[in-house]
């Protein structure tokens, strides 16, 4: 059994679920890691250390910026010449696109957001969520190779063996790009909700603190956003202490408190961290579908009737501006940080 594992990275920063995919591939047999881009030697080396039997590196100027078309063509060419049984990807915005296109080239299909994958003779049976995770399906792909994008944190991460040596083979890029990347905006920092073990999220309630006075000269909307930013600072403190990421409800995003990349829920990200702390979030269904598979859910809300409490294992009825800093302090002490 030969599996290709596509190592997804952004400017050399690898999506951790790529390694989880590599671990899964190893459990089926031979794992060949694919690394595309320029100046990606470190990524290739890491792939060896995480257990790849071989790494195929396509280092070409056409691959410097991710463009779905060239990445897909390069993948399709490699799959055609080497005939893997399976191609695994971490589920990301990029891999959804390139896997989608490559499946068209190879006349096969893609199983997305896979949380379990069983081998049955020559075929693979994937478990994946449908209807926003309200139902699960088992699904198969009759094409060859089978392509699957795996959900982050659903499969164990293999150990890294520093300094391990292995076979790194150069391969060529294929196909033509159909777009140009004009630039990146640096104003937003990376938000990796999918891989975060802990997420602390804030909602509309984060702007509700009458006890702090915004700087003079602000209109009502500016004052609201300013208050919310003080609230998100408390959320960030706790998230940072716990090694986690900051999430948000849509009301917080729509209110301009925080960027869309942080949004959890139906039209944002679906996440399943070990710990999810919701502060000032009421618990609308569109938010719940994004986080209810977290292992442990804690809710802080000043309204005892907020629906979020029905989903939570632990609840605190109180003002997040008082509870959050106290919780950060208590955690600091107890975790010895």
């Amino acid at each position: 059994m030969k599996t290709f594992v596509y190592i997804d990275h952004f400017k050399g920063e690898v999506q951790p679920a790529s390694w989880e995919a590599l671990g899964l591939a190893k459990s089926f047999g031979t794992a060949v890691a694919l690394v595309f881009g320029t100046g990606v030697d470190e990524v290739a080396k890491a792939a060896v250390e995480f257990g790849a039997d071989e790494v195929l590196v396509a280092d070409d100027s056409s691959l410097t910026d991710y463009r779905a078309e060239v990445y897909a063509s390069t993948l399709s060419a490699l799959a055609s010449s080497q005939s893997p049984n399976l191609i695994l990807f971490p589920t990301t915005a990029r891999t959804r696109e390139m896997a989608a296109m490559s499946a068209v080239d190879l006349n096969t299909g893609v199983l997305t957001d896979v949380s379990a994958l069983e081998v049955n003779g020559e075929s693979f049976i994937a478990t994946r969520p449908i209807y926003e995770g309200k139902v699960l399906e088992k699904t198969v792909c009759s094409g060859k190779p089978v392509m699957a994008t795996i959900r982050g944190r659903a499969f164990p991460k293999p150990n890294r063996e520093e300094g391990k040596s292995g076979t790194i083979t150069k391969v060529s890029a294929a196909g033509e790009a159909k777009s140009t990347v004009e630039g990146y905006s640096a104003s937003e920092s990376a938000v990796n909700l999918g891989d975060a073990p802990v997420i602390v999220s804030g909602g509309r309630g984060v702007s509700n603190n009458p006890n702090i006075t915004p700087p003079a000269g602000m209109d009502e909307k500016q004052a609201e956003v300013w208050r919310a930013q003080q609230g998100f600072a408390l959320i960030t403190d706790l998230a940072t202490l716990l090694g986690g990421a900051v999430g948000a409800s849509r009301a917080a995003v729509d209110g301009g408190y925080i960027t869309y990349a942080h949004q959890v829920g139906q039209t944002g990200k679906v996440v399943a961290p070990d710990l999810y702390i919701a502060a000032g979030i009421s618990g609308a269904i569109q938010h719940l579908v994004g986080m209810r598979n977290a292992k442990l859910i804690v809710a802080i809300n000043k309204d005892a009737d907020a629906p979020i409490f029905k989903q939570a294992r632990y609840g605190v009825v109180g003002d997040l501006f008082q509870i959050l800093p106290a919780l950060t302090e208590a955690m600091k002490k107890k975790l010895g940080k």
Binding site: N107, L111, V135, K138, T139, S142, K310, Q311, A312
Partner: peptide, 18 residues
Amino acid sequence: IVTRTELMNPPAQETATE
């Protein structure tokens, strides 16, 4: 090419809130 073989309800979630 992609077909469904089985449908399942996710395991019932623990809802006891403390």
